[in-house]
Amino acid sequence: MTLSRRLTPYLYILPFLLVFAAFGAYPLAYALRLSLTRWTGAGEPRWIGLDNYTYLLTSPEFWASLGNSAVIWLLVVPIQMVAGLGAAVLLSNARLRLRGAFRVAFIAPFVTPLVAMAQVWIVVFDQDHGLVNHALNLVGLPDVGWLTSTAWSKPTLALLFLWKTTGFAIIILLAGLQSVPAPVYEAAEIDGASRWRQFWSMTVPLMRRSLSFLLVIQTLAVFQMFAEPFVVTQGGPFGSTTTAGLYLYDHITASDLGTGAANSFLLVILVFALSLVSVRLLRAHDE
């Protein structure tokens, strides 16, 4: 094989490699270097080794931000997996009347701009003039500080996230359901399996890959959650909705770029580990 013939494939992928190097590899390497420095954007970055990482790992605020994200994950992902699967099964039933309308209704929030919906959330959950507290007052219940109390701020944000992204979960799960062969259910019906038995013993196991994919995607989304707290609570009250993503952003806007970069890498490691656990669980079941 001539040299030019051997080089040809590399020439074909060269444009991609150049773009990747400029906009993927270089920024990553730069950010890694930056994470080992102190730099506010002015002057030269000062090399400080692992100090940014040490600072973050011993910072109560860093762990609190991860804790906030973890609580929101608990409030969102299990509910979304169960409710999403239930809704997907219902929506895949050909005998369901107005099925198309229901599908649109479930998926509409997913395609609605998040920032606009976040503004609606602010209005609806306002402590003094919100619709929700107004409804509570009508049945004799007191006002709740949905966005102003540390007890309720995370559930209120989690509800927004659920409302916004459950449509996406349903799309994923509906696609998974399409891949389950119909004869499997026909055989089960002939064998006398009840609807519940079919769901539990056939649908759920056959949907494991879709559910695992959803688990990974939503875990990533929750730990990167930014716009919801940024618009609705700005991380308050008292940092109770400062998610991992918002905490990272705070460093960058405070021109603490080295710490921001270190925070990015710690989050990458965390999210990578969580994803790995999910994938391992899937493989264990497959084996």
Binding site: P27, A31, L248, Y249, S264
Partner: peptide, 16 residues
Amino acid sequence: GAAGAGALAAAGGALA
């Protein structure tokens, strides 16, 4: 906000 939303993935690029 939009810049921050992608911070995890894009921090490197933004900082660079």
